[in-house]
Design a protein around this nucleic acid. Structure first.
Length: 210
DNA sequence: CGTTGGATTGGCT
DNA sequence: GCCAATCCAACGC
């Protein structure tokens, strides 16, 4: 039996691949042979013709992996200090991917703690920048093959759980609710959007005075 | 060529 | 809740 997700899994629209990835397990093999693993609990889809996507304005040196064949890892650098990782979807030339935003640590937690400089489990992989740091994924890992490579891959997991759906973090587009997470999972990132967290107060009521 | 702000995080008010 | 950190891609002139 094969545990690794095949190329065909990724060769679909990102909006289909993204929710299907929840519950599967991202495995990272370090150069020294040690393995780290985390269950995917939060992802976001980025499609062609999607103004929120890096691929929207065409291929550049930065996003060229997004336009390559599916099942590869697209890693980019942002805010001058963080890396984010995506699984490339659709067919070569189409420019689409799924951002891996958060994971539940399963194996190699001590390595993750060392990479992160943090102790608590919930601070290891709960956020796109944290996730890449915990798994030691950066510029050199951009473009690696998740299907045929031996550096990182995604294995079938238990899946399951209710899937929460909301707008993507940092993308001001309320018409595309392409953020997916495992409802109630404590390892989901602190991303602001999703369901409204505060009840509206009557307009006539006085503002709360703390 | 200069400016702007980002698919973020962590620390401080 | 607010904001600095710190690089660089995208865009305007």
């Amino acid at each position: 039996m094969t545990r690794r997700l095949p190329r065909s899994f990724y060769a679909r629209p990102a909006t289909e691949v993204a929710p299907d990835l929840l519950g599967h397990v991202l495995v990272r093999a370090l150069p020294d042979g040690r393995r780290l693993a985390a269950r995917l609990v939060e992802v976001e889809a980025y499609e062609p013709d999607d103004p929120g996507s890096h691929a929207f304005r065409g291929m550049t040196a930065r996003n060229e992996v997004m336009f390559g064949p599916p099942g590869h890892l697209y890693v980019y650098f942002t805010y001058g200090m963080h890396f984010c990782m995506n699984a490339v979807t659709r067919r070569a030339g189409e420019g689409s991917a799924v951002l891996l935003r958060a994971g539940e640590p399963l194996a190699g937690l001590d390595e993750m703690r060392a990479h992160r400089g943090r102790e608590r489990d919930v601070e290891l992989c709960s956020g796109p920048g944290r996730f890449t740091q915990a798994l030691a994924i950066a510029r050199p890992e951009n473009g690696l093959d998740l299907v045929a490579g031996d550096t990182a891959w995604i294995e079938r997991g238990a899946g399951g759980g209710n899937v929460g759906i909301g707008i993507r973090v940092g993308v001001h587009d309320t018409s595309r609710s392409w953020r997916f997470w495992l409802e109630g999972n404590p390892f989901v990132s602190r991303g602001r959007p999703g369901p409204p967290s505060r009840k509206p107060r009557p307009a006539s009521a006085p503002a709360p005075t703390p």
